Amino acid sequence: MQTDETSAPAARPGGPGRYTSFVALGDSFTEGMSDRLPDGSYRGWADRLAADLAAATPGFRYANLAVRGKLIGQIADEQVKTAAAMNADLVTLVGGLNDTLRPSCDMGRVRARLEEAVAVLAPNCGRLVLMRSPGRNGPFLERFRPRMEELFTILDELAERHGALVVDLYGSGALGDPRLWAVDRLHLTEEGHRRVAEAVWQAIGLEPRWDWTEPLPPAAPPGWYRRRAADLRFAREHLLPWIGRRLTGRSSGDGLSPKRGDLLPYPYEL
Results as ranks from 00 to 15, higher is better:
L180N: 01
C125G: 07
P178G: 07
P16I: 00
A119V: 04
R236L: 14
L101H: 10
L25A: 04
P217A: 10
E237M: 15
R113Y: 05
R227I: 11
K70I: 00
H193R: 13
G32P: 06
W212V: 03
E160Q: 15
V23Y: 01
A63M: 04
P265E: 15
D39H: 09
P16A: 02
G138C: 07
E116T: 13
P134G: 10
S172P: 08
T92I: 04
A54Q: 01
M107F: 09
V80S: 03
V196I: 11
A119F: 06
R102M: 12
D89F: 03
P208Q: 05
E198N: 02
G40Q: 10
N137G: 09
G138W: 05
A76L: 05
L53S: 04
G40I: 05
D39Q: 07
Y42R: 12
Y268S: 15
L232F: 13
H187I: 06
Y266P: 00
D89E: 15
E207P: 02
A164S: 12
L158R: 01
P258C: 09
G32E: 02
S252W: 07
P221Y: 08
Y42N: 09
K81N: 13
R227C: 13
L247N: 07
P178W: 13
Y170H: 14
Q79Y: 02
V94R: 00
L175Y: 12
L151R: 04
V120K: 12
I243Y: 15
L264Q: 11
L130Y: 05
L49N: 06
R127Y: 00
W224D: 10
L165R: 01
G95R: 00
E160P: 00
D27N: 10
L37D: 05
E160A: 15
Y62L: 00
S252V: 14
G14I: 08
L128K: 01
A83K: 08
E142D: 14
T213C: 14
Q2A: 15
R195K: 09
W210K: 07
F152E: 13
P217G: 04
F140S: 05
M1T: 15
R12I: 03
A117W: 11
E191W: 06
G96A: 07
A10D: 14
F152Y: 15
H162I: 10
V80T: 07
A76T: 13
F144M: 08
L270S: 11
P208Y: 03
T6R: 12
W181R: 10
A199I: 06
G26T: 03
R48L: 15
M131S: 15
F152R: 03
A55I: 04
F152K: 04
P13S: 07
G14P: 09
G249Q: 04
G249D: 07
D4G: 09
P9S: 00
A84Q: 00
P217S: 05
R161V: 10
R36A: 12
I204T: 01
R127W: 01
G163E: 08
D89H: 11
G171V: 01
A229S: 14
I154E: 09
L232P: 02
L175K: 09
M148K: 04
A55Y: 09
L165M: 11
V120R: 13
Y42H: 13
P218K: 06
L165H: 06
G44T: 12
L93A: 11
D77F: 01
R228Q: 14
N137P: 02
I243S: 12
N98F: 00
I72S: 07
V118K: 08
L93M: 13
A88N: 02
L206G: 01
A11S: 13
V94C: 03
A219K: 14
R209G: 07
Y268V: 10
L206S: 07
R132P: 09
T82R: 13
